[in-house]
Amino acid sequence: MRILYLIYDYIVSNVKSVWDVFSHTFTKADTVEYPDEMPYLAPRFRGRIVLTRDPDGKERCVACNLCAVSCPTDCISLQKAEDETGRWYPEFFRINFSRCVYCGLCEEACPTYSIQLTPDFEMAEYNRQNMVYEKEHLLINGTGKYPNYSFYNVSGKAVSGRKKGEGVNEAPPVDVKSLLP
């Protein structure tokens, strides 16, 4: 029995290994000739982070700070500001990509679908300082993966000319002077 085991272990398995390796000579390669040829990256690949816009073209980010607090490397920072209509937006929005681990927790935390990870990983720089992205580098002109969502439509806050009660599933404002039952 032991003899049989040794024969398998020393001879058959080696021959099988050699066979397996050489048989790959005739299979299709999984690797691609990057950078001449781009690999396929699924839409949910976690690469470069972008900030998206509402379907009506307004900045989606409301500067709620949830991405920043969920970030395990603390590489996101921003400051809330408010426009004259009461709409919150980030005064600055900074991601230090030299610290980012592309974990996607910021995207998961984002209540407005603003922050999204994209299938782009070509971000290498010779100078580390260039890995710091500001809002102008992050903000894109589109809705990204979620085309129809607009946070302020469902928030219940009166902003950008939309009055109280004009949002989705909202009743008109209560008439406080009414005494009717």
Binding site: N65, A68, V69, C71, T73, D74, C75, I76, S77, L78, F92, R94, I95, N96, S98, R99, R128, Q129, M131, V132, E134
Partner: peptide
Amino acid sequence: HRYSGRTSLQANIKVA
């Protein structure tokens, strides 16, 4: 303990 932006807040001035 949840203070955010530690590696990013000053990164525009100096990334290290």
